[in-house]
Simulated assay, not measured.
Amino acid sequence: MANKTSGKLYGVGIGPGDPELLTLKALRLIQGAPVLAYPAPDVGDSLARSIVADHLPGGQVEYPIRIPMVTERFPAQDVYDKAAEDLSVYLEAGQDVVVLCEGDPFFYGSFMYLFGRMMERFEVEVVPGVSSLMACAAMVGAPLAARNDVMTIIPGPVDAEIMKQRLRNVQAAAIIKVGRHFEKIRSILEELDLVDCARYVERATMDNQKVMPLSEVGDAKAPYFSMILIHKRGEAWTL
């Protein structure tokens, strides 16, 4: 049961990268928060903080949640355990805490790990944001799906056979978290004859954004913030 005398925990979606894609509610909460937390790499600056940096009033307590860039489960879980413990101190003192979440907090967002640890002890509110999926479709300039299409979302790290199975009869799909899995994904799409239906988007809405047909992407390693959108029926939304 949440303690009504405690501060409130907010998971605030801040969109895919363009600072102008913040919602009005997100902006209000970010500027009024006495404590601001955000994900950050174990070394270097936080992308989430950089998105909202120009809107910060100053004078806030800032808490970077530094997450090791490794694939193993437990090191990152330890980080969330520690963050939940540390942020609980502010909440128990009656201070609200805003946690910045790239994209949307509940669309593959890391905020869900804090949510799971803290929802029974504190009042928690999730503020939705523009997800990477919506941003990539806008940057490509094509709808994600049309009419009765079934939209399939597949994380890049999944096993190749599982990905192949999911894509075999797909109508519309988004492959997210492409990163170092790019060559595996491209090979599968080539095998399923889906390359000509696919568009590649890298760092959507950011200054260094790239958008192109998948067939034009070279052999360079894709960044984590990249996505492949597929629509098997082509421009099915046109007459």
Rank of each mutant, 00 (worst) to 15 (best):
E190T: 12
E190K: 07
E190N: 15
E191M: 07
E191K: 03
E191R: 02
L192M: 10
L192C: 08
L192Q: 01
L192H: 03
D193W: 08
D193E: 14
D193N: 15
L194R: 03
L194H: 01
L194M: 11
V195K: 03
V195W: 06
V195E: 08
V195F: 08
V195M: 12
V195L: 11
V195P: 07
D196W: 07
D196Q: 14
D196L: 10
C197G: 01
C197D: 11
C197V: 04
C197Q: 14
A198T: 05
A198I: 01
R199D: 12
R199C: 11
Y200R: 03
Y200D: 00
V201D: 06
V201G: 02
E202W: 03
E202F: 02
E202Y: 04
E202C: 09
R203Y: 11
R203K: 11
R203P: 03
R203V: 05
A204I: 05
A204H: 06
T205L: 06
T205W: 05
M206A: 13
M206I: 11
M206D: 05
D207L: 11
D207A: 14
D207M: 10
D207I: 10
D207R: 15
N208D: 13
N208H: 12
N208Y: 14
N208C: 10
N208Q: 13
Q209R: 10
Q209V: 11
Q209K: 11
Q209N: 12
Q209D: 09
Q209F: 13
K210I: 13
K210V: 13
K210T: 12
V211T: 15
V211S: 09
V211E: 06
M212W: 07
M212V: 07
M212N: 07
P213G: 09
P213T: 07
P213Y: 08
P213Q: 10
P213R: 10
P213S: 10
P213C: 06
L214Q: 01
L214W: 03
L214V: 09
S215P: 04
S215I: 02
E216Y: 07
E216L: 09
E216D: 14
E216C: 03
V217T: 08
V217A: 10
G218V: 03
G218A: 08
G218C: 04
A220R: 15
A220W: 13
A220D: 14
A220H: 14
A220M: 14
K221P: 00
K221A: 08
K221H: 10
A222T: 00
A222M: 02
A222K: 01
A222D: 00
P223R: 06
P223W: 02
P223V: 05
Y224L: 05
Y224F: 11
Y224E: 06
F225M: 14
F225K: 04
